[in-house]
Nucleic acid binder design. Structure first.
Lengths: 112, 112
DNA sequence: GTAATCGTCAACTGAATGGTTGAATATGCC
DNA sequence: GGCATATTCAACCATTCAGTTGACGATTAC
């Protein structure tokens, strides 16, 4: 249990990995396509994806030579529950969330 | 922004630090008292508290020779909002949360 | 004043992390 | 078969992290 939270929070602590999760929020993607917007090497992104998969935040399925990455939002439940226990926040404003995500993506990913 | 989430999630990824936050949920505490249940050194706990303070998750105020540590749950808001965007979870069951916290504390802190 | 208490600092260690490059392994295409 | 594409592996490097121990600066108590 504590073990799982360790790994989930550690996975979320990296901006590249959070950016990847945001990208996968829109659609499943192949590893190469996930890596495309980043300046770091493909191997580095592959490692990040492994970290996310170990945390249960994404799943990966190989079809042919392409490995598809899929968001697994349920893995965030334990972490969300843990955090909500420390303060009751009003319901999330999803519009604000989307604007926030967008600005975080812009900070993390280089413009083409 | 992304910077803040980095630091908050990294702070939460350590079980000792999460245990400290749980302890502070009940009451403000002095550094020495925070350290008491742990087997690690006082200096190590002092460092953990600095990490939590840097993340804004606690505040520290020195009165006399005692430094008091206080939970600052609002710092979790940004992180909670970020995570909730990935899935709409039902309202938190606080009883379940308390049981969970207790079991996590028992896993992290040595019985006297 | 002197001694005990509270907490941090400094220097060190071992392990983990994020990154690189180049080779290796599959798989698909012609 | 032969070549291109997709992804990971292996080895390496620099940095960060959690922990230790011992010394040190404050503050309180006697």
């Amino acid at each position: 249990m504590a073990h799982t939270l360790d790994i989930i929070f550690a996975a979320l602590s990296d901006p590249t990995r959070r950016a990847i999760l945001s990208m996968l929020l829109e659609d499943d993607m192949a590893v190469t396509d996930v890596a495309a917007p980043f300046t770091t090497s493909l191997a580095a992104i592959s490692k990040h994806l492994q970290v996310l998969a170990d945390a249960g935040l994404i799943s990966q399925e190989k079809r042919g030579r392409v490995k598809w990455c899929k968001l697994e939002p349920d893995a965030l439940r334990a972490a969300t529950v843990w955090m909500q226990g420390f303060g009751q926040f009003e319901p999330v404003n999803l519009d604000a969330f989307e604007r926030f995500l967008e600005s975080e993506l812009n900070d993390t990913i280089q413009a083409p």
